[in-house]
């Protein structure tokens, strides 16, 4: 399972693609595989203030509920409205069309984030 370069990752299996002071956030390929088919996504409201490491929403598979956490502090600029009707995008294209939230970043604790290589090691450790 290749972990894309150029993104920031969390130990709770979110990814973040930064462009200036905005960022797109989703869950990783490994996270979607662990969760199984996503059937329902609960996203924050546009304008919500979020804090790094706190719960931002939930993803539900047929069997289980799983929270996802914000990789940075800031404000919710946009959410992926398509997931209301097509939650499976999270499974099919977790780094692309299955994105969850767009943030305006106010602060990031870089020490809590991982690069692709470091995240890859975490996944390798968890899968064995």
């Amino acid at each position: 399972m290749a972990v894309p370069e150029g993104l920031s990752y969390t130990r709770s299996h979110e990814w973040m693609r930064r462009e200036g002071d905005t960022a797109v956030v989703g869950i990783t390929q490994y996270a979607q595989d662990q969760l199984g088919e996503v059937v329902y996504v609960e996203l924050p409201e546009i304008g919500d203030a979020v804090e790094q490491g706190t719960e931002m929403g939930t993803l539900e598979s047929v069997k289980a509920v799983s929270e996802f956490y914000s990789p940075a502090s800031g404000e919710v600029l946009a959410v992926n409205e398509r997931l209301a009707d097509e939650p499976n995008l999270v499974n099919d294209d977790p780094y692309g069309e299955g994105w969850l939230v767009k943030l305006k970043i106010s602060a990031v604790d870089e020490t809590k984030l991982l690069d692709a290589a470091a995240y890859d090691e975490i996944v390798a450790a968890e899968s064995h």
Partner: peptide
């Protein structure tokens, strides 16, 4: 086995 290819 909880699932093989997918619950749905």
């Amino acid at each position: 086995p909880v699932q093989y290819t997918g619950i749905r």
